[in-house]
Amino acid sequence: MALQRLPLAIHTNVAELLDQLRAAGVAEFGGGASFLRRERKGRFYWYVRTRQVEGQRPERYLGPETQELLETIQQAQSAKGAADGRRMLVRALRAAGLHAPDDRTGRILSALAQAGAFRLRAAVVGTVAFQTYGAALGFVLPSQAVRTGDLDIAQDYGVSVAIDDGLDRSFLDVLRAADPAFTPVPKLDPGKSAAYRTPDGYAVDVLTTSRNAGDEETSRLEALKTDATPLRFMDFLLRDTVEAAVLHGDGVLVRVPAPARYAVHKLIVSRKRGQANPKRRKDVEQAQALIEALSLDDPFALREAYAEARDRGEVWRKLLDQAVTLLPADTRAALEG
């Protein structure tokens, strides 16, 4: 497939939007917030202590110390409200051909972001994540590969257990802030649910990493206050997630899988779906688009992710070998080096 490269000015606007969203996200804690640096096992982590509420000053986790986070904190300490400017950037990026979610998905992502889900290292996975990669990589991605009617949210089980922070209310209550019609879909295990639906069929599924071959039907994600369905291969997808801007409203800052990992993961899961499943073809289309974009600008990340997946065992290699036969010869060559 022929990918259209975005003008440099548009790609620059994407970077500017991301910078503004990061600063705005931290600034939302308010002028009375203070930032705290803590050491744990030789690494430094940052927290924000918000303004006093009912005699307490809650602390919120921001993430491991990076130069980017330090710059974001510095910007946030002096940032003013710039929502109108971000809204203009979002409109310009959408007009340039970058993909945006439907309004309901945008509202749900905004509610999750405001509640802190992505700060807590939850990630958008699936087609809604794919929609963000055009902006990140500087290409207009094929429109047939971005259509979806659901939303998948995932969090690494180990992260959820280890992180000393969580949502202020249940995951379901956060969803209902965006659409009151959401109801939990019950699992066989009484009282548990890892999926939420509206009467017209819109679905939000919560996923997590598989810990062993004998996983229960659900795992509890304490940080997100919901159950989740454990899936194999999810640990590969969720390693080293990245920030992305969703083009809704004045922008929504989310986390998504690294594009190279997403591409390789899609090749793997395409072989796990049934022959009649329409998502099988879309998996390959998304993988092909990302492979072709990454081969031009970041071939090393692409080949590193592919090599890592192949090194994970015979089952992984077999699934990848089957999937790559469906790719055009030049795309396959870019992947295999």
Score class of each variant (00 low, 15 high):
Ala2Ile: 14
Gln4Lys: 14
Val14Ser: 05
Glu16Phe: 07
Asp19Thr: 12
Gln20Leu: 14
Arg22His: 11
Arg22Trp: 07
Val26Gln: 07
Ala27Asn: 05
Gly32Cys: 02
Ala33Leu: 11
Ser34Pro: 11
Phe35Gln: 06
Leu36Ala: 14
Arg37Ser: 14
Arg37Cys: 15
Lys41Trp: 15
Arg43Ala: 15
Arg43Cys: 04
Phe44His: 15
Tyr47Gly: 09
Arg51Phe: 12
Gln52Met: 14
Val53Arg: 15
Glu54Asn: 10
Arg60Gln: 04
Gly63Ala: 11
Pro64Arg: 13
Pro64Gln: 09
Gln67Val: 13
Gln67Ser: 12
Glu71Cys: 11
Thr72Ile: 03
Gln75Val: 03
Gln77Pro: 09
Gly81Ala: 11
Ala82His: 12
Ala83Thr: 15
Asp84Ala: 13
Asp84Ser: 14
Arg86Tyr: 05
Leu89Tyr: 04
Leu93Glu: 11
Ala95Asn: 14
Ala96Trp: 08
Leu98His: 06
Asp103Ser: 15
Thr105Glu: 00
Arg107Pro: 01
Leu120Tyr: 02
Ala122Phe: 05
Val124Ile: 05
Val128Ala: 05
Gln131Gly: 07
Thr132Met: 05
Gly134Met: 08
Ala135Tyr: 03
Leu137Tyr: 11
Leu141Ala: 12
Gln144Tyr: 09
Asp150Thr: 07
Asp152Trp: 01
Asp152Met: 00
Asp152Ala: 06
Gln155Asp: 02
Asp156Leu: 05
Asp156Tyr: 03
Tyr157Leu: 15
Val159Phe: 13
Ser160Asn: 05
Val161Trp: 06
Asp165Pro: 06
Asp165Arg: 10
Gly166Ser: 12
Leu167Asp: 02
Arg169Trp: 00
Arg169Gln: 13
Ser170Asn: 08
Leu175Arg: 04
Leu175Ser: 09
Arg176Gln: 12
Ala178Asn: 04
Pro180Ile: 00
Ala181Thr: 15
Leu188Arg: 13
Asp189Tyr: 12
Pro190Trp: 06
Lys192Ile: 06
Ser193Trp: 00
Val204Cys: 07
Val204Thr: 05
Asp215Trp: 04
Glu217Gly: 01
Leu221Glu: 01
Thr229Asn: 11
Leu231Ala: 08
Arg232Asn: 15
Met234Tyr: 05
Arg239Ile: 06
Arg239Tyr: 12
Thr241Arg: 03
Val242Tyr: 03
His248Leu: 06
His248Asp: 13
Asp250Asn: 12
Gly251Arg: 10
Leu253Asp: 06
Val254Met: 03
Arg255Thr: 07
Arg255Lys: 15
Ala260Phe: 05
Ala260Gly: 07
Tyr262Met: 14
Val264Cys: 10
Ser270Glu: 09
Arg271Tyr: 03
Arg273Val: 10
Gln275Asn: 10
Asn277Arg: 07
Asp283Asn: 10
Ala289Phe: 07
Asp297Lys: 11
Arg303Glu: 00
Ala305Gln: 01
Ala305Asn: 01
Tyr306Asn: 09
Asp311Arg: 13
Gly313Lys: 08
Glu314Pro: 00
Lys318Cys: 00
Leu326Met: 09
Pro328Cys: 07
Leu335Val: 08
Gly337Trp: 02
